[in-house]
Design a protein around this nucleic acid. Sequence first.
RNA 1: CGGGGUGUGGCGCAGUUGGCUAGCGCGCCGCGUUUGGGACGCGGAGGUCGGAGGUUCGAGUCCUCUCACCCCGACCA
Length: 417
Amino acid sequence: MRLSQLFTKTSKMIPADETARNAQLLIQAGYIYKVMAGVYAYTPLGLRVVENIKQIVREEMNAINGQELIMSNLQPREPWETTGRWDDKVVDIWFKTKLKDETELGLAWSHEEAIVEMMKQYISSYKDLPVSVYQFQTKLRNELRAKSGIMRGREFIMKDMYSLSANATQHDDYYNLVIEAYKKVYGRLGLTDTYVTFASGGAFTKFSHEFQTVCEAGEDAIYLHRGKNIAINEEVLNEESLSQLGVKREELESVKSSEVGNIFNFGTDKSKKMNFSFTNEAGEKQFIHLGSYGLGITRVMGVIAEKFADEKGLVWPEAVAPVKVYLARLGDTSEVVKQADELYNRLTAERVEVIYDDRDTRAGEKFADADLLGIPYRVVISDKTVANNSYELKARQAETSQQVSIDNLLKTLGVTD
RNA sequence: CGGGGUGUGGCGCAGUUGGCUAGCGCGCCGCGUUUGGGACGCGGAGGUCGGAGGUUCGAGUCCUCUCACCCCGACCA
């Protein structure tokens, strides 16, 4: 995209109504727009990051046979009443509204009951199992207090997946597959500092698993065992859990972290309440084992922004960056313009995504914007580079730039002939 | 929800004990000079001070109510 045409602008000022670093930077750089407390719009740049994160998650969920769908935000009350979760006293984060005829509706904060209600229509035999479905959805939660920018809002994008299994073994097999898939996701996102964490499990099981990324701005406190690559949420840190996991308290390191994923085993608890059953080989009625697997897309974006940013601005890992290259054209002599246009067209044709800074502004401003936006590579074309018959390349985190030939430039940017 | 704080051009801020046409920086528009780390000069546009009510000769400054935002806590499948 040509920067001269992008409607968003960067700002030199830090927004006064945000203290969370992720929100400050994302707003300053023009990735998000604050609508109200805990509610943000995603601008073209921000949307690209969201979509990149989603695509990585999508690929890994598809790889374990997840079937993508999309549920509705408007929720009828009945399915939620069967599990006792319609009552505001039980679930205090409901947003509710009404139809013109006064029928009460909920705005989805989760889709567990909704998915079960839908799947009841399709699943009736052991031959239909196991099956796994997922979606990317905007969840609405009436949090008492929004905070931490996009890391905890009232409206946020989440990937939620649900597995349906015929028995505990089938469920466990899939559950473990998901753990591995999640590890791949965080690895690809650059969040290598993420730990499978034992946390409180709810009704059916002793523990659930959280995926916690070490992050100062996070809301959780975990105790991690770097050697074994596991962690324990402080809420379940006790002798019992320690012995079960085979670790000693003094081996654990206490860190702040952000919960970027949480997976649950519901067993047959919910399917019993909602009468969700199938017929097995012997013709007997059995309840379905359910698993729920959440992954906060926009929270991940916030954590990445927060973790990698430096004093100059954002630093996106290549896998999620809105574009790979920031092409800065310095000056407007005909040869510079020609070369810059050509490179822009060439890279675009090669499917390398580029922000082409074709604005009539000074070098310092372009460099500052390239840094603030956090684009992985900066390429400069100027009278100097034209005279040298070279291109200037600098990685976002590199100290200095280097002059490279067109071949080396394309190679570094992943263009192969 | 308890406690604390803040609302003044698009953004960031200043506005003495109430007192003259409400200022500054950034940004924006025009002209010129500049042109490798957020340039400079000159000339402009833009606010009725979150909202409502009140006190007063007079309110951005005081009072009441209200809305919004931020922080701490509580909460957090």
